[in-house]
Amino acid sequence: MQIFVKTLTGKTITLEVEPSDTIENVKAKIQDKEGIPPDQQRLIFAGKQLEDGRTLSDYNIQKESTLHLVLR
């Protein structure tokens, strides 16, 4: 499924993921596309910060959901 990741600069990254993918996994995909190390990434969905060990389905993230990427 496709999800979108919006950065603070207003750029939107499109990722191909599975509901069973972990947040860690998603961060690795963002690193592949954008070169941002996962340890600098914070992903936010519905106002919650997403934890590395959880999966997209844990957070009920469905196709075409938009996550927000904050760098630390």
Rank of each mutant, 00 (worst) to 15 (best):
Q31E: 06
L8K: 15
I44S: 11
L56H: 00
I30P: 00
V5N: 00
L15T: 01
E18Q: 12
Q40M: 09
L67Y: 01
I61V: 10
I36S: 13
R54H: 11
K33M: 12
V70P: 02
K27D: 00
V5A: 04
L43F: 05
I13M: 11
H68C: 03
D32Q: 06
D52P: 04
L56Y: 00
I30M: 04
K33A: 10
T66H: 15
D58I: 13
D21I: 08
D39C: 02
V26K: 00
L56F: 03
T66N: 09
G47D: 15
Q31A: 11
G47C: 03
S57W: 10
K33V: 13
F45A: 03
K33L: 10
M1W: 04
P38L: 13
S20K: 07
Y59E: 07
R42I: 15
E64F: 13
K6T: 13
Y59A: 03
D52M: 13
I36C: 02
L71E: 14
R42V: 10
S57F: 10
G35E: 07
E34G: 02
T12E: 15
E24D: 09
P38H: 09
K29W: 05
E64G: 05
H68L: 07
H68D: 14
T55S: 07
I61W: 01
I36H: 04
D58A: 05
L71M: 06
I23S: 04
E34A: 13
P19T: 13
N25M: 07
V17C: 02
K33S: 14
Q62A: 13
Q62T: 13
F4Q: 06
G10L: 09
S65M: 10
T7P: 08
Q62D: 08
G53E: 12
E51K: 03
I44E: 15
I44H: 12
D52G: 05
V70I: 08
L50S: 01
I3D: 00
T66Q: 14
K63N: 05
K29C: 02
Y59V: 04
Q40R: 04
V17I: 12
P37K: 08
Q41M: 14
P37N: 08
K29T: 07
A46P: 02
S20Q: 09
N25I: 08
V17Q: 04
N25S: 04
K11D: 15
T22K: 13
Q31D: 04
N60W: 07
T55Q: 11
K33G: 12
Q2H: 09
V26E: 00
R54Y: 10
T9E: 12
T66W: 14
K6C: 03
V70C: 02
T9Q: 09
M1Y: 07
G10Q: 07
K27A: 03
N60E: 07
R72D: 13
E34S: 10
E18H: 10
T55G: 06
L15P: 00
A28N: 11
N25W: 05
L71N: 13
T7F: 14
Q31G: 08
N25D: 03
S65R: 01
G35S: 05
Q49A: 10
G53H: 13
I3V: 14
Q62H: 07
K27S: 08
I44N: 15
R42F: 15
Q49K: 06
G47L: 05
V17Y: 06
I61T: 02
K27M: 14
E24P: 09
T7H: 15
G53I: 07
P19G: 11
V5W: 01
T12H: 05
L15M: 12
R54I: 13
Q41E: 04
M1V: 04
I36Q: 08
L69Y: 02
E34Y: 04
E34Q: 03
K33D: 09
Y59Q: 09
L50R: 00
L43M: 07
H68N: 10
E24F: 06
T12R: 04
P38W: 15
T66E: 14
L67F: 04
L8W: 07
D58P: 01
P38Q: 11
I44D: 15
T9R: 06
T9I: 05
L50Q: 00
G10V: 10
S65N: 14
I3G: 00
E51T: 05
V17L: 13
K63C: 02
L8N: 12
Q62F: 15
K29M: 06
Q41R: 03
L56M: 12
E24A: 12
K11R: 12
F4L: 12
K63D: 14
G35K: 12
L56R: 00
S20A: 11
